[in-house]
């Protein structure tokens, strides 16, 4: 005789909710999962009717579930949004091909238009080529910088107002900790914002800001959503690895710790005397940058000159 779901008191409980430890039935789990995301969207006034939204789609669990939930909520609550899938091809053989196939399948399943943009067409270099040139030391830096710009440029091509990414609560909590550990006060202030804007830069939101990674996996599992899951073959970074382990340990001591960290991050305010770097634009490509040349252009210059950076 199984226990009953603590919310509806009718159905048998089949899962223990990672965020709260509550024992829930499937339907109630779907409800709380979806409603919390809806609340995050509404309370933060992320969208308005008629907005064109690009969903950053990697084929991984976060973006697959994101596409599914955005479509579902758009219909259920009549947000009135036009949704697109936007995918970036970094040019990593083996890894990227498979995940791109998944995105193409998502396009069919969710009936959403898809745009794929590649590093090769944007920068003239694929990740495989970059790694051949600079080795495995700073390749993640390249990839990170290039991807951020690639999404923006893809969004411009699609003519959308807004990009949504699948960053979840675990990602944000980890970033808060990382920024404290390495003293990046400017990023610390920004990283808990659910929506970031910038001149010359498309607005980005994280509807999964308060959604636990485990629950995203659970949702995908029960709803039998199709996703591709492997870590990039060119990761990881050891310092972040420590922070991630700590976060996982924290979660096992107290499940709400992830949300608690985000809550703390949102409350931080910086002393007025602290100097923050100012934002300008890149001389070469017009992207926003605190220096004359934006990161991507600097890295590209280095690559093109044959100098590893």
């Amino acid at each position: 005789m199984g226990r009953l779901c603590v919310i509806c008191d009718k159905e048998r409980a089949i899962i223990k909710r990672p965020k709260t430890g509550q024992k829930l039935c499937k339907e109630c789990f779907y409800y709380v999962f979806e409603t919390e995301i809806h609340n995050a969207i509404i309370d933060n006034k992320l969208f308005k009717k008629g907005d064109r939204i690009a969903i950053a789609a990697s084929g991984g669990k976060d973006s697959t579930v994101l596409a599914h939930v955005m479509k579902l909520l758009n219909e259920r609550y009549q947000y009135g949004l036009e949704l697109f899938l936007l995918s970036v091809d970094e040019g990593i053989t083996g890894y990227r091909d498979d995940s791109l196939e998944t995105v193409k399948r998502n396009q069919q399943q969710y009936e959403l238009p898809l745009k794929i943009i590649s590093y090769s067409e944007l920068y003239g270099w694929s990740m495989d080529q970059i790694v051949k040139e600079v080795g495995l030391k700073n390749n993640c830096t390249f990839c990170g910088v290039f991807r951020r710009q690639a999404l923006d440029r893809g969004a411009v091509i699609l003519n959308v107002d807004h990009i949504v990414t699948g960053h979840n609560a675990d990602d944000i909590a980890e970033t808060v900790l990382m920024n404290i550990l390495r003293g990046d006060i400017a990023r610390l202030q920004r990283c808990t914002e659910i929506c970031t804007t910038g001149d010359g830069c498309i607005r980005r939101s994280k509807p999964f800001k308060y959604t636990y990674e485990k629950e995203i996996v659970m949702y995908a599992y029960f709803k039998k959503l199709d996703y591709f899951s492997t870590e990039c073959i060119y990761s990881p970074n050891s310092y972040r690895g420590h922070a991630r382990t700590f976060l996982k340990d924290l979660e096992s001591v107290r499940p709400s710790a992830i949300i608690d960290i985000i809550h703390s991050g949102e409350a931080f305010e910086i002393k007025k005397e602290v100097k923050l770097p100012t934002q300008g634009v890149c001389k070469r490509c017009g992207y926003m940058s605190s220096n004359e040349l934006c990161k991507a252009c600097v890295l590209l210059e280095g690559l093109n000159r044959g100098l590893p950076k």
């Binding site: 990697s58 084929g59 991984g60 669990k61 976060d62 973006s63 995940s99 700073n138 993640c140 830096t141 990839c143 990170g144 910088v145 991807r147 951020r148 699948g166 960053h167 990602d171 970033t175 390495r182 990046d184 870590e231 990039c232 060119y234 990761s235 990881p236 970074n237 310092y239 972040r240």
Partner: peptide, 13 residues
């Protein structure tokens, strides 16, 4: 999906 978000080179001492 790559878990590395925008990283600057860390002066880790």
């Amino acid at each position: 999906m790559c878990s590395i978000q925008e990283e600057t080179s860390l002066d880790l001492n």
